[in-house]
Write a protein that binds this DNA or RNA. Structure first.
Length: 583
DNA sequence: GCCGTTTTCGGCCCGACTGTTTTCAGTCG
């Protein structure tokens, strides 16, 4: 072997399996698509690189994954060892298009891709856009003007992502690179700055800042990292690269005396920086990335704490630096005591393999304990979401019994952990729920959620959601706006009315921590804080690995100025339960 | 192709919406 072959990431591998599912879908092969999708999900949710898992545990470690059996494990082995596998190549030959690109468009599925390729030779996004703009698609059988318009809108939406990526997707990569830099012998301190540090829900690129007295050696090492694909520029203080993951990354090397000023400057936001510099000028200073200066003399700059203090400000946590009132609050020393990343005691939305989750109740409990939680609510889907094998009243009752038995077992084993029974109940079009009130009354935690009719007009949608919140058994409104970042817009809700109703009815609003949900979003959280509405930060875990997403929800809550007192699952169990309507 | 509190073969789950259609396919959750 000459140069090391770049290792496939779990994301790459999951993508290949998803393409397999789509290819089988085109062939109208029954059941296989679901099987491949399930396997893709399991791999995408994995923390540890699949290659590493395979290297250590062989085929058995692969088949141990949920949804991975003998055949898929064999395919994965081949994929890991050779970069592809025969069955994938065979299927791809039949429809040789850029599947990932085309399927990323909302409303475009495998059948449409196949038809477009067969009839118009469309192979990628550019082909598709050209054909749609030329009005060619509307003339195909089973297509029409509306479909053509939908495709163009879908492409627009995809574009508006502007190459920004989900924080949850980027954060592990950023932390890993940060650790790599920290381990360089010439590096004294390394930190990730930018929007990652501010925990913005999406990230455009990565900014790293290091202290070193040997910048050239650091830059040399940096550009030779295997994660680096292309070097845009390389200098003494700044190097700019494209990573294999598709992200751009900047590395800046600064002397220790400037680190705080540089960290502040490169953390942003731009608006916060400008406001800070204006404040400095008013006080007779000059502020730049090298420090706070009075004339030629540097009065602060080694640490952020020192910098903010010199300006007469309380330390402003990075999540608040958006120039949305934080500087004024810091002047009055009236910043909120933000909820901390270690403050959560429970998780009030957890799915299991009773419906569309990957793992059993017991496995989720184990993982929650390992994540340092004291309680979780099991909230599987209900019946009208049939594709998830949603629970009906009988199934919910059976699950309540299973949970009661598990709690008894935990107590017997001396474990201080409580499993609450719950459900993620569907809100019907008219605002009624798809589970009988009598059964809801027996559950510890009832979450209600919109999973259908996303496009109702504002008045009707708001009326619908309010009616659900007024149900005396509904404790929490799950992912209140239903948005999927970069994929689906939020439902059209009068958010003020929802917050007012939450206050009036005592309904908790969720901050769903899934990377592509983060719903409520930061600005709505801040409205809730102002209105004194309680919220819950939930992982919405569908697999044991998902509890780590809670950190994203906490980041979002901090961006919304939330304190521990606003977040019910940061409270001890007894206090939290008293807060719920059904208690 | 996966899986097992319906257990090693025979299931794999439904229902709504949209846009295209004359009775339904594709997509989504």
């Amino acid at each position: 072997m000459t140069t090391a072959q770049r290792e496939l990431s779990n994301r790459d591998i999951a993508q290949v399996l998803l393409e397999m599912a789509a290819l089988y879908e085109m062939e109208e092969v029954p059941f296989k698509p679901r099987a491949y999708e399930r396997a893709a999900m399991a791999i995408a949710a994995l923390d540890e690189p699949l290659a590493q898992r395979y290297a250590q545990g062989g085929l058995a470690a692969l088949t141990a994954l949920p949804g991975v059996g003998k055949s898929i494990a064999e395919h994965l082995k081949e994929l890991l060892e050779t970069g592809t596998f025969r069955e994938y190549e065979r299927l791809k030959r039949k429809v040789p298009v850029n599947l990932g690109e085309l399927l990323a468009i909302e409303g475009v599925g495998p059948k449409m891709v196949k038809a477009l390729w067969q009839q118009l030779g469309i192979r990628d996004l550019a082909d598709l856009e050209r054909a749609a703009r030329a009005g060619q698609i509307r003339h195909l059988p089973h297509f029409g003007v509306k479909t053509e318009e939908k495709i163009l809108r879908g492409i627009e939406l995809l574009r508006s992502a502007q190459g920004r990526r989900l924080l949850g997707e980027v954060l592990p990569e950023a932390r890993q690179l940060e650790a790599t830099l920290r381990a360089f012998p010439e590096v004294e301190v390394a930190m990730v700055a930018g929007s990652v540090r501010r925990m913005r829900e999406t990230v455009g690129d990565l900014d790293f800042l290091v202290i070193s007295s040997q910048p050239q050696a650091v830059m040399e090492r940096f550009v030779r990292l295997p994660v680096v694909q292309h070097v845009y520029s390389k200098g003494e203080t700044r190097t700019s690269v494209r990573l294999h993951s598709g992200l751009d990354a900047d590395l800046r090397v600064v002397p220790a005396a400037s680190f705080g000023a540089a960290l502040s400057y490169f953390t942003g936001s731009k608006a916060h920086n400008i406001a800070l510099r204006e404040l400095a000028i008013k006080q007779g200073y000059k502020l730049n990335e090298y420090g706070l200066f009075k004339g030629e003399r540097r009065v602060a700059g080694a640490s952020e704490e020192e910098l903010y203090a010199a300006l007469g400000l309380a330390f402003i946590p990075p999540e608040l630096r958006e120039d949305s009132g934080e500087i004024e609050a810091a002047q009055r020393h009236a910043l909120p005591q933000l909820i901390d990343y270690h403050d959560l005691r429970g998780d009030l939305q957890v799915q299991t393999n009773w419906t569309d989750g990957a793992h059993s109740i017991e496995e989720m409990v184990e993982a929650a304990m390992a994540a340092g939680l004291e309680y979780i609510a099991i909230t599987d889907h209900t019946k009208s979401l049939a594709m998830t094998r949603g629970a009906d009243e009988d199934k919910l009752r059976r699950q309540m019994e299973a949970i009661a038995a598990l709690n008894a077992k935990l107590r017997q084993a001396g474990k201080r952990f409580t499993v609450l029974s719950g459900a993620e109940v569907n809100i019907n079009r008219d605002g009624s729920l798809d589970i009988d009130d009598a059964v809801l009354a027996e559950l510890d935690v009832v979450g209600a959620a919109v999973h259908s009719h996303f496009n109702l007009p504002r008045a009707e949608q708001t009326r619908r959601v309010l009616r659900a919140m007024e149900n005396p058994h509904v404790d929490i409104l799950f992912h209140p706006t239903g948005r999927l970042i970069h994929r689906r817009p939020p439902i059209d809700l009068d958010i003020e009315a929802v917050i007012e109703a939450a206050q009036r009815t005592g309904t908790v609003l969720e901050i769903n921590a899934m990377p592509d949900r983060l719903d409520l979003r930061d600005e709505y959280i801040r409205k809730c804080v102002a209105a004194g509405v309680r919220m819950a930060i939930d992982s919405d875990a569908h697999a044991v690995e998902h509890f780590r997403y809670l950190a994203l929800g906490i980041g979002q809550a901090r961006r919304g100025w939330a304190e521990r007192r606003h977040i019910v699952n940061a409270w001890p169990l007894a206090q939290m339960r008293k807060m719920l309507k059904s208690a």
